[in-house]
């Protein structure tokens, strides 16, 4: 029997009514697994931000969540436009979200910074015109 469990979620493009579905599903699973509430908070916020990013910027994508007794790994993969300047995108308040998205209350430029803040490890690989893969890890024990 394997010591890990993997869950895969499809994130649809431009469907705000479904944005957050994947992270809320993961949240409910983690609760049932008895994961520490603080860890759940970190995972669900980091993943929600990532999920919203995929909806706004990346025409959707897939998220793999791998849970082991030691850590929770989230791999967010999209075939979107890619991030031109990762360093700039990581700055709090920097956003390329279009106006129609901003009027929905998104696009405050806190997506990537919050993902970094709430995960213990974060790695971004992005190729312009090809897509972006964000890997985040949250440790089960601090």
């Amino acid at each position: 029997m394997s010591d890990t469990i993997t869950m895969t979620y499809e994130v649809p493009a431009d469907d705000f009514t479904r944005a957050g579905e994947a992270s809320s599903n993961v949240k409910s699973k983690l609760k049932k697994m008895g994961v520490d509430p603080d860890i759940i908070r970190k995972v669900s916020i980091a993943m929600y931000e990532g999920e919203i990013n995929m909806v706004i910027h990346a025409c959707g994508g897939t998220i793999d969540v791998i849970i082991s007794p030691e850590e929770i790994e989230m791999i967010l993969k999209d075939q979107g436009p890619g991030i031109e300047n990762i360093e700039l995108a990581m700055q709090a308040g920097y956003s390329t979200a279009p106006d129609n998205i901003r009027t929905l209350g998104f696009g405050a430029g806190m997506g990537l910074p919050n993902m970094k803040k709430y995960s213990d490890e974060m790695n971004i690989e992005s190729v312009l015109g090809v897509g972006t893969t964000v890997t985040m890890k949250v440790k089960m024990f601090e």
Binding site: M1, T4, I5, K31, K32, M33, V35
Partner: peptide, 23 residues
């Protein structure tokens, strides 16, 4: 205090195994 009544396992290993089984 938090009462995790919906918990599926006694520890993380058991929870992971049980959650896989649920899936």
């Amino acid at each position: 205090k938090y009462e995790p009544v919906f918990k599926l396992g006694k520890n993380m290993k058991e929870s992971i195994a049980n959650m896989s089984r649920v899936d």
